[in-house]
Design a protein around this nucleic acid. Structure first.
Length: 308
DNA sequence: CGCATTTGACCCGCGC
DNA sequence: GCGCGGGTCAAATGCG
């Protein structure tokens, strides 16, 4: 696989972080740079600090690049190992993967090679869907949300608008499972299932199916003025696409208050939150890249194999 | 009154 | 073929 393409992406992230999401940062960008334009004396003073910051970011960028390169190497190693393994054990691989022949017959076999071992195995168990719904087969992700233990609702505030259309008590878990459809766009095919973890009742497990065919609502909100809404909302859906990879756990016992902050739009929060937003943006941009996700999964797997 | 949620009924695939 | 279980539908209900 060609690693260089997504490595370059990371370079962009660090050198010109605001370019990652052009729509979002305009306001910040304007504030930040226009301030410097108006007060040139202040600019001279701060230019030294900016240069220092630039150096620091460049160093960090270099470090990240090295990490990515290493991940890429690990990925290549693992991939060749996987290919070899699959060549030796084609039958086992097929039989152990899944019982559902309808999904086994889907032509995602090619993508498996790219996305690695991830999609088909553990995620398909969540997609016991009618075969005709194979348009949604593509993206299934699972996100763990930590909530207050006393919070008995199955509501996950991930920034999207969801309409609940069902609830079931499943056999393997005493807590009910709630079914949601994305209601932000009528044509959006995305569904999610939310259920409390069997192990830890304070953890909500949200399983997302499909891809949103519309922008994130809070991102739209951000472009129209407020920058705050996206910090939390954008994370779950983008940060964990691709699933049987290690799932993402988000601690919302604290973020509840920040949700409130979002609604109140407290100006005091703005400046300290900007770096956090940047981090979120970078993470979002990176994790949206399927190549990066695949490589990350492979690299982590490679590491684990290496350690074992 | 319109919209979202609830909840029982129904559908469908799978295992026996 | 039948029963089970997960997923979806749609009428009833609640709420602003």
């Amino acid at each position: 696989m060609d690693c260089s393409s997504w490595i370059n992406t990371s370079l962009d992230l660090n050198i010109n972080p605001y370019r990652v999401h052009e729509e979002f940062p305009k306001k910040v960008e304007n504030n930040f740079f226009s301030l410097g334009m108006r007060k040139s004396s202040v600019k001279e003073e701060s230019s030294g600090a900016l240069v220092e910051e630039l150096k620091r970011v460049s160093a960090e960028n270099k470090k990240l690049t090295e990490m990515l390169t290493e991940m890429c190497e690990n990925y290549n190693t693992l991939r060749s190992n996987l290919m070899e393994y699959m060549r030796k054990n084609p039958e086992k691989e097929l039989s152990s993967s899944k019982k559902r022949k309808s999904e086994g017959s889907n032509n995602n076999s090619n993508q498996m090679g790219v996305n690695g071992n991830s999609e088909s195995s553990s995620t398909d168990e969540e997609s016991c869907k009618k075969p005709r719904e194979d348009t949604i087969k593509a993206k299934i992700s699972r996100v763990h949300f930590r909530t207050e233990a006393s919070d008995t609702s199955l509501i996950v505030k991930d920034g999207y608008q969801w309409r609940k259309y069902g609830q079931k008590v499943t056999r393997d878990n005493p807590s009910p499972r709630a079914y949601f459809k994305c209601s932000f766009a009528p044509s959006c095919p995305v569904k999610k299932k939310v259920q409390r973890s069997v192990d830890d009742q304070s953890v909500l497990v949200a399983t997302y199916e499909g891809e949103h065919n519309h922008p994130h609502p809070s991102q739209m909100e951000a472009t129209s003025g407020s920058n705050h809404g996206m910090t939390i909302g954008s994370v779950p859906c983008s940060a964990s696409l691709n699933t049987s990879a290690p799932t993402v756990t988000l601690d919302w016992t604290k973020s509840k208050s920040s949700n409130d902050v979002v609604k109140k739009k407290d100006p005091k929060i703005e400046s300290p939150e900007v770096p956090q937003i940047l981090v979120e943006q970078m993470a979002t941009s990176l994790t949206k890249d399927p190549n990066f996700r695949a490589a990350l999964v492979a690299a982590i797997s490679g590491r684990m194999l290496h350690n074992n």
